[in-house]
Every structure is written in structure tokens, then in C-alpha cells.
Design a protein around this nucleic acid. Structure first.
Lengths: 144, 144
DNA sequence: GTTGACTCCGTAGTCGGGTACGGACTTAAG
DNA sequence: CTTAAGTCCGTACCCGACTACGGAGTCAAC
């Protein structure tokens, strides 16, 4: 059931990507804009379905749309090195994020545990700690 | 050298938080707005310095500004349980993010490794894989 | 008493990845 | 032939956390 000659609506349906999002990707240059035959409706095919899958997969691995565009431009079999470099960089980013989150996890876990044991009668050790906290956790916590 | 009677500029200087950001926090209700004596200039003190530190620390642990506001409202010693609940929830979030990133790391690592060994002559295994990738990685990859 | 730095305040813009709206058009079904 | 659904297109809006701008007022030094 591979797809040939789909309308945007159908393309959206089979890929699970909203019509507006498809148009957004086209504006961003991630997806071709098929010509419209005599002012008619644009038609999409299997290659568009595949491209949308590519975009989704790359996004799931943490690539931004700009990076996805870069990757697509490298898709001619002769730029394997560059693609690998991009992925290697992303892998480093991911590992760094994991490390940052682990530090956060440790601090948060310590605070919660302390709070549970010391309990809150007249003060909450957790909230008190937030005023003071030394620079253990990364300076760039959320996202980045 | 604790601070008393600072101007916004000085407060910004000692806390490292930009003046505009301080005003933004005030608009969001995270920081008090001292009254201005006879149309003069607003004065800040040590408690404001401490509050800004609180905000920064909580942010570093991944709390949004709305959550920081919540935490601050709980700072009277009698709401330790609620605060702990917030932190416990955040801890769960962080762990989930770590798990997601670990899956991403694994996939990315596999792709890069495969790409290195198979090398790119006429095709790049990495890019080819992005078209196909089965749903291994989390559906919500970046941030979230 | 003037100059220049700083403050106050409202409003608007930034980034990334979309989502929503609305009018004009085309197309398929009845 | 009409009507309803779907398409096309531009534009504006959303989130969160800021950042920038610009005019008016204030304050301290010289």
C-alpha cells in the first residue's frame, strides 16, 4: 500500500503529520512543493511520505529542523563523512545533556530524601536549600 | 558584604541577573516590587538577593518560573509536603528525560558506528537508516 | 544648574516548532 | 448544478524565558 498521487490531506493522514505542518516544512525547504497542474491541486507520492518519515526520525534523535535540512542535503551517498560528523556531534550533545540531568537528578534526590527524613515542622529543608544551593548542577539546566 | 538598599542596577550586578530580567520576574510575581519613596527610586535589599538566588537554583533544577512561583508560595514552613511533592514530580520528569536520552544515545551510537565501519561509497548507512528507523526512540525526543 | 548615568514603564521582538484563521478557489458527490 | 469538503495561501498567533527599545523622569557629581 505504498502511496502514489496523494493530496496534502491524504499525505497528512498516512504520515500523521498535520497539513499545516507539512506546509510549514515546505516553507522551511524540508519538503518539495509539487507543481500544480493547471491551477489544480498539488499531488504527493511515496517519496514525500519517505521524506516526512526521515524528518520525524531525525527529530526524534534530537536534530533541529535546520539540521534535518542539512542531513537531507547530504543525501547523495557521497557525503557520508559530513553526515557522520553531524551525528557524532549530536551524540556528544546527548551525552552532555544526560550528564547534566544526572547531576540534577542527584541534587533533587538528595533534597527530597532529606526533606522526607527531616520532615517539615517549622521549616522545609527542601525549600531552605533552594536559597543556598552551591553550584553543583549545571548552569544550563533545562534543554540547551 | 550582604546588601542593603540597592538600586536595580546594583541588584543586577550582585546577582548577575539582568535588570530587564528582574523587571520580568516582578511582572511574573516572582519578586516583590518595593514602593518608591516620593517618586524616587525603588530600593532592594538582601531578601531580594536571596530570592533571586532561589529562582536561579530552582531553574537550574529544571523548575519552570510558574513552578518556582509555586515553591515560593509554599515557603512558610507549613507546606513541606506540597513542596516535596513538586520536587518528587520533577525528579520523575528528570528520570524520564534521562531514559529517553539514553535510548537516543543508543540509536545514535549504533548509527554512527555502523556508518564508520560500512563507510560511505555509494550510500550512507546513517542517512539511509533515518528514512526507515523503527520506533525505538521516544516519540517525544527534544525537551518535553 | 547642567550634564550624563541611571531608573521607570510600556510595548514589542526573539527563538523553534509548530498551530490557527479566513477568504478564495477547486473538486467530487449527489 | 449545487453544495460541501478539501486545497491554497498569507498572515497571525502560541509557548517560555527572556531581551531590546524608547521616551520620560530622577539623581548625583561637577
Amino acid at each position: 500500500m505504498s502511496a502514489q498521487s496523494l493530496t496534502v490531506g491524504k499525505l497528512a493522514q498516512v504520515t500523521g503529520v498535520h497539513v499545516e505542518t507539512i506546509r510549514y516544512y515546505q516553507r522551511r525547504g524540508l519538503l518539495r512543493i509539487p507543481s500544480r497542474p493547471m491551477k489544480g491541486i498539488r499531488r504527493y507520492d511515496d517519496s514525500d511520505v519517505r521524506r516526512l518519515a526521515f524528518i520525524r526520525h531525525a527529530q526524534q534523535l534530537g536534530f533541529s529542523l535546520d539540521e534535518v535540512a542539512q542531513l537531507m542535503r547530504l543525501d547523495d551517498g557521497t557525503h557520508c563523512d559530513e553526515a557522520r560528523e553531524l551525528a557524532t556531534g549530536k551524540l556528544a550533545d546527548v551525552r552532555q545533556k544526560i550528564e547534566g540531568l544526572r547531576q540534577i537528578e542527584a541534587v533533587l534526590n538528595r533534597l527530597v530524601t532529606r526533606c522526607e527524613s527531616e520532615g517539615g515542622h517549622l521549616c522545609c529543608p527542601l525549600i531552605d536549600a533552594l536559597y543556598v544551593l552551591s553550584g553543583q548542577a549545571p548552569t544550563r539546566p533545562p534543554n540547551a
